[in-house]
Design a protein around this nucleic acid. Sequence first.
DNA 1: CTGTTAGCGCCTTCAG
DNA 2: CTGAAGGCGCTAACAG
Lengths: 345, 345
Amino acid sequence: MKATDINLSKSATMGDVARAAGVAPATVSRYLNNPDVVSPKTKHKIDQAIRAMNYVPHAAARTLASKKSRMIGAIVPSLDSNLFAPALEAFQSQVSKAGYTLVVASDNYDAEQEFKHINQMVSHGIDALLLVGSSHDEAIYQLLKAKQIPYVLTWTTTPQEEHPCIGFNNKIAAANVANYLMDLGHTKFAMISNNIKRNDRAHKRLLGVRDALALRGLSMSDEYLVERPISAEQGREAFRLLMSRSEPPTAIICGSEPFAYGAIFESKHLGLEVPRDVSITGFDDMWLASLITPSLTTVRTPQQKVGALAADYLIAKLTGKDVALPTPLEVEIIVRESCAPPSKH
Amino acid sequence: MKATDINLSKSATMGDVARAAGVAPATVSRYLNNPDVVSPKTKHKIDQAIRAMNYVPHAAARTLASKKSRMIGAIVPSLDSNLFAPALEAFQSQVSKAGYTLVVASDNYDAEQEFKHINQMVSHGIDALLLVGSSHDEAIYQLLKAKQIPYVLTWTTTPQEEHPCIGFNNKIAAANVANYLMDLGHTKFAMISNNIKRNDRAHKRLLGVRDALALRGLSMSDEYLVERPISAEQGREAFRLLMSRSEPPTAIICGSEPFAYGAIFESKHLGLEVPRDVSITGFDDMWLASLITPSLTTVRTPQQKVGALAADYLIAKLTGKDVALPTPLEVEIIVRESCAPPSKH
DNA sequence: CTGTTAGCGCCTTCAG
DNA sequence: CTGAAGGCGCTAACAG
């Protein structure tokens, strides 16, 4: 009923608004982008006209003329899986609060897909970009640099590189877990991990474990490293496999939490008792960790914080503000029931 | 090293490509949008030029000139929570496969936020839009209609309305659950549900239960309906509350699966045994359903299918193809261990 | 504080 | 099958 019907077929343009308000288009533009420099009087007139005509600025035209799209991109390995969801939710929240629109894509841990998506996003003119992990095609960095698009790498920290990162130290976190288990007396370790070639976080966690073991003169042979796609179901299978070894491990470090859930569930099917027969650790501290029986000893990672900080960083960067270099986030081992000293026999 | 350095500061434009290829910009445009009408010879020249200069079309300019942004929007209640993640992942996959870019936002079940996001997306020129559920501000439909933007409502089916929907019948699904429990002999029901005012799917599920009960001369009073934000933790609390009633229910229907998980975990704390002391049902059949003890009787909903079909529908619509009216998807009760006849006493 | 003037990069008739 | 010309809606100097 409103004045909507004025432009049912053709949306009102800035020109229309300007005419209706009796000002020049440029003034309307100012009203929109820099209201402070417009006199209250004309401001009012423009405001009236805008809501009367139900005017909505044309973002593409704006992008074309201003070189700023007000869109921010995010590429995650997977939208499914709770692994990145909390961070993405926080990211989207901050991003939209700042008036930006979020563009997302998932690459399924596939570098080619990632590259394709980034190209598409760049073509769409995204102003900034969130990436997960630290291993990305060099061409990507070149592209981003050429187009001067700010970006952050999340879930990682690589002080030696010059890429801005927001995350925690996966290697140290995993080493801490290994140390905790060694303190309990474990020496026979196994690890269930995502593909270490394609997933740099998984890789770093493995390194952390290996380093920690080495420091105490221990090691983990390759047969005790099981690489799987991340899911509880895969965790079950991996667990079964590991426990069927002639010499089963006394502690299993799961590089991703769903593996740990699967392992714990499967232990019941196998008639094994956690932690008496085998200790299990997770990674992330998802909601199920405290509810499952036995509850899961794991490392708590600041997921929403990663998302929120990443957004803050990018937005600050876009706003031209001073941007504090993000420092690695803290990570904490949550001790629950799934670990115990190895049983002697 | 490539010819990338040609335009480090300023990206190559179509004009640049045209000049390099010795043709007119219009021809390059054709090559991009309608290759078939370009001769193989010039096609080759243009191709060369494009990859030599590392040319990437400027999406905003394209949108401005063509009125098509090649972006598709999706607004979901939450990116977190596995509730919509599988569907969104499938949606994104199809969408990007078709060359579109996905724009997303979450509205936290808040109508105002949803409206704001839609406006923003429309301003950005999205070509199509995915929405969740059937209750949306009338202004939204008007806007979409005015701008002629195809859309789908997902997770719902409302044949009486003229909105295209892709989903299943929540009411019937819930009624089936109630019937299943009544067949087992239950008469004292409770339901744990998300806010029924803000979440139309939750509302429909409640109606389904109520209707089914009524058909057999039963009913559920308001004290046995507990409304909570969706999470296992809330499910625990709701369960505790319900079981502390002087006359506890013998069957609890959970409108969302996390509630059921929480209820089952909490039952152990309370020294109750499921299903002996109380039967519990879920809704969605998430991965945990089969792993938890007791495993969860629930209704399996075709989540990725919803996402994939929604994408197919919208893309077909955009392509101008004949679009079959989507029919309601099937839903299936998965009988596991969490339900049994009520114990007599 | 406001109006004028040029484009931004591409698509789309319309001719040829 | 290809080229030329105009404009999509907005912003960004530049004057006034």
